[in-house]
């Protein structure tokens, strides 16, 4: 397998030459790359998708749950977790500033696959009812901040905040048509409300939706920007927490075997221990 050409630095050093890999080993390492990608992408895609389904749940699932207050708050706070951990794994071990983007990309692809298979083919819900949110914009900003700042704490402070803050505007452009007003039975409704009403989910009565409750409503029509700012603030801490978790989980640690353990493993006779 051909090794992609790298730009040679002034000393003529390349990644391959400095790594010490022989040409044959380098070719095998490329095969190893593909094997890792083939294994890791489905693994993280499934895990991240499950995580979002369990923690963001209906806010990401249904168009008539995407309100101005809770959706821009709950979704990014939960959705930053895996990208932050992946960012740490890719950066700390390989200096690859792509972890967050990988997480956000596999999530969006998996989500659409799920919508198509589960919600359209299996249960027949229209796609409009299940338009998901995306966090690629925030994830890209996180990776860009990391490559510029090269520091996890500053990345948390600036890019963690950006991840939460841009969630609302970056998704609004895709979802704005669903907030057009219609008159239905003498009352105002958004098109999203109408979609949820028209195509019934038998076990999801209207009152289950959590739409603009609590004190953030005080800010009136600006509630979404207040939510976005608050989401950004929380994402600062979530990013650092999950960065550390990702870093911890990607460590290889060896524990010294004592005599008792060795005897259990058959590496030393019990009498000798």
């Amino acid at each position: 397998m051909a090794i992609p050409k790298r730009k040679v630095n002034p000393k003529g050093e390349t990644v391959i030459s400095v790594s010490g890999l022989t040409p044959k080993a380098a070719r095998y390492s490329r095969i190893f790359d593909f094997l890792v990608v083939a294994a890791v992408v489905p693994l993280f895609a499934g895990a991240f998708h499950l995580h979002v389904m369990l923690t963001v749940g209906d806010w990401d699932m249904y168009v008539d749950w995407k309100d101005r207050q809770y959706w821009p708050l709950v979704a990014p706070i939960s959705m930053i977790m895996f990208p932050a951990a992946l960012q740490a794994i890719f950066w700390v071990n390989f200096r690859l500033p792509i972890g967050a983007t990988v997480g956000a990309t596999v999530l969006l692809i998996t989500t659409w696959l799920g919508r198509y298979a589960n919600w359209w083919i299996w249960t027949g819900f229209p796609f409009t009812e299940g338009v998901p949110s995306q966090v690629i914009a925030g994830a890209l900003l996180m990776d860009m901040a990391l490559i510029v700042l090269r520091n996890s704490l500053f990345t948390s402070i600036f890019a963690g905040f950006a991840f939460g803050f841009v969630f609302w505007p970056s998704n609004y452009s895709a979802l704005a048509p669903f907030y057009l007003p219609v008159e239905h039975q003498g009352m105002v409704a958004s098109l999203a409300d109408m979609i949820g009403y028209t195509f019934p989910r038998s076990n999801m009565p209207e009152y289950l939706r959590i739409i603009e409750r609590g004190t953030l409503r005080t800010f009136g029509s600006s509630v979404s920007w207040v939510s976005a700012a608050f989401a950004g603030f929380i994402c600062i801490f979530m990013h650092q927490l999950w960065w550390q978790l990702g870093r911890f989980a990607s460590q290889t640690t060896f524990l010294k075997n004592g005599d008792v353990v060795k005897s259990f493993m058959g590496m030393k006779s019990r009498r000798a221990s």
Binding site: V15, V18, S19, L21, S29, R30, D33, V36, F94, L96
Partner: peptide, 9 residues
Amino acid sequence: RPLFLPRWL
């Protein structure tokens, strides 16, 4: 670019 193993080394 060369990915995991070379970059790690």
